[in-house]
Simulated scan of single mutants.
Amino acid sequence: MKALVYTAPHKVEVQDVPVPEGRSGAAKIKMHYCGVCGTDIGIFAGKHPRATAPLVLGHEFVGTIEEIQDGSGRFAPGDRVVAYPLLSCGECLACRTGHPHVCKSLKLIGIDKDGGMADCAWVDEDVLFKVPDTMTDKIAALVEPLAVVVRSLHQARFDVLNSTVVTGAGPIGVLTAIVLKHSGASRIVISDVDQARLDVCKDLGLETVNVRDTNLVDYINETTNEEGVDIVFECSGAPSSAAEMTKLCRIGGTICMTGIHKEERPVDLRDMNFKEQLLIGSRVYTKQEFEMSVAYAQTIAEDLEKVVTQIVPLSESEGIFDMIADPAVNTVKVLVDCQA
């Protein structure tokens, strides 16, 4: 079968690889689409501490069940499914106390074992969720990153009519703004340095700030009578956002760390003391939040459609990371068509 294989830092290849062997309690899935995640970009760059070549990439996938070995009866061949890709140990403190999504040794499909950028894959039945008949494959491929956002709103204790700033208009930032829009936020400001991504946000009816041209802290102070917003969702992973996020947030407000910072960042802890702000982390999602996202995706499908900016055939995907890195291409969310 064909698969996109990470072979070395800055190198991926479309290869003919053996079809994985089936196992009891698993389903063989014919892959339709698989999304490219920021984690995949990190793997390609050789910066992911666990990913080891050769590795079939991809953990944001949708496909159709072709075969089941020793199944439970919950699924049947022909069912379209998405997969909860987290692999927990079941033994550490997090797992023992009901938080397996932040397992001490958390692993993921597509990082610690072969993923979904392939013709097919065998996936354990107990992590599969059926896709509604009315949902397109394109929308279903966004369920996993959407679950990241659902988790972050839960972590931030978002409430209707909260005012918000989203720093970073990458896929997670744009999805965060979309969910806030449909959840009743009174104001959503999204910032980035990439005007093409901000133009997508404008098309979604969002308030945008290009921080190449406008100081975000000054903008928020001017438009809030220097009070700040209720919740800041930091989705960029950029050092400038870490430095500014306490300035954007009001007294008693919340800062939710949705983006992953790969290095230590300076943060104004005095602001947090004097303004009694809450800083909270958000990593991935629970299995329940993933299931919620399957149903929720269909209700906001019209906006989700606008997030997918390119679909690349698997057969032509060796240059996909160079394409994403090219500012002239204007990508937000890129999918791989695994059957093309």
Rank of each mutant, 00 (worst) to 15 (best):
Met292Ala: 12
Ser240His: 13
Met245Pro: 08
Ile251Thr: 15
Lys262Gln: 07
Phe290Gln: 08
Val267Gln: 05
Val232Tyr: 14
Gly259His: 08
Gly281Met: 02
Leu278Glu: 03
Gln288Met: 04
Gly281Pro: 06
Arg250Glu: 13
Gly252Ser: 10
Ile300Pro: 01
Gly259Val: 09
Thr286Gln: 00
Val284Lys: 02
Thr254Phe: 09
Ile280His: 02
Phe233Gly: 07
Glu263Thr: 15
Asp268Lys: 03
Ser236Pro: 07
Cys235Asn: 00
Phe274Thr: 10
Val294Trp: 01
Ile280Tyr: 00
Phe233Pro: 04
Leu248Ile: 08
Ile231Thr: 00
Glu289Gln: 01
Val294Leu: 01
Pro266Lys: 10
Pro266Val: 12
Gln298Val: 14
Gly281Cys: 02
Ile300Met: 01
Met292Leu: 12
Leu248Tyr: 10
Phe290Pro: 10
Arg270Ser: 12
Leu278Ala: 06
Gly259Pro: 11
Ala295Leu: 13
Glu263Met: 14
Leu278Phe: 13
Met272Cys: 09
Thr246His: 04
Ala297Lys: 02
Ile260Ser: 04
Ala295Tyr: 05
Leu248Ala: 05
Lys275Trp: 05
Ser236Tyr: 07
Asp271Ser: 13
Ser293Ile: 09
Ile260Trp: 11
Gln288Leu: 04
Val294Lys: 04
Met245Leu: 14
Ser240Met: 14
Asp268His: 10
Gly252His: 05
Arg270Tyr: 11
Ser282Met: 00
His261Phe: 14
Met292Arg: 13
Ser236Asp: 03
Lys275Pro: 00
Glu234Gln: 00
Arg250Met: 13
Leu278Lys: 08
Arg250Gly: 09
Glu263Ala: 15
Pro239Cys: 13
Gly259Lys: 07
Ile300Trp: 02
Arg265Ala: 13
Val232Phe: 14
Pro266Asn: 06
Arg270Thr: 09
Met272Arg: 03
Tyr285Ile: 04
Cys249Ser: 04
Lys262Leu: 09
Gln298Ser: 11
Cys235Glu: 02
Met272Gly: 08
Arg265Ile: 15
Cys235Pro: 01
Asn273Arg: 13
Gln298Gly: 11
Gly281Leu: 05
Ile260Ala: 08
Cys235Gly: 02
Met257Ala: 15
Lys275Leu: 05
Gln277Cys: 00
Ile280Leu: 02
Thr286Ser: 03
Ile300Val: 03
Ala238Asn: 09
Gly259Trp: 08
Ile255Leu: 12
Glu244Asn: 15
His261Lys: 10
Gln277Ala: 00
Glu263Phe: 15
Asp271Met: 12
Asn273Phe: 15
Glu264Gly: 08
Gly281Lys: 03
Thr258Val: 15
Cys249Phe: 07
Ile255Val: 13
Ser241Trp: 15
Thr286Trp: 01
Ser282Thr: 03
Pro266Leu: 08
Ile280Asn: 03
Lys275Tyr: 07
Tyr296Met: 09
Cys235His: 00
Ala243Trp: 15
Ala238Asp: 10
Met292Lys: 13
Ala238Arg: 10
Thr254His: 05
Thr246Asp: 05
Cys256Ala: 11
Cys249Pro: 06
Thr299Asn: 00
Phe274Asp: 09
Pro239Val: 11
Lys275Glu: 04
Asn273Gln: 13
Phe274Lys: 08
Gly252Met: 08
Pro239Tyr: 11
Gln288Tyr: 01
Phe290Ile: 12
Ile255His: 07
Ser241Lys: 11
Val267Cys: 03
Met257Arg: 15
Ile280Phe: 03
Thr286Phe: 01
Cys235Thr: 02
Gly253Lys: 10
Glu264Trp: 10
Gly253His: 11
Gly252Tyr: 09
Glu264Asp: 13
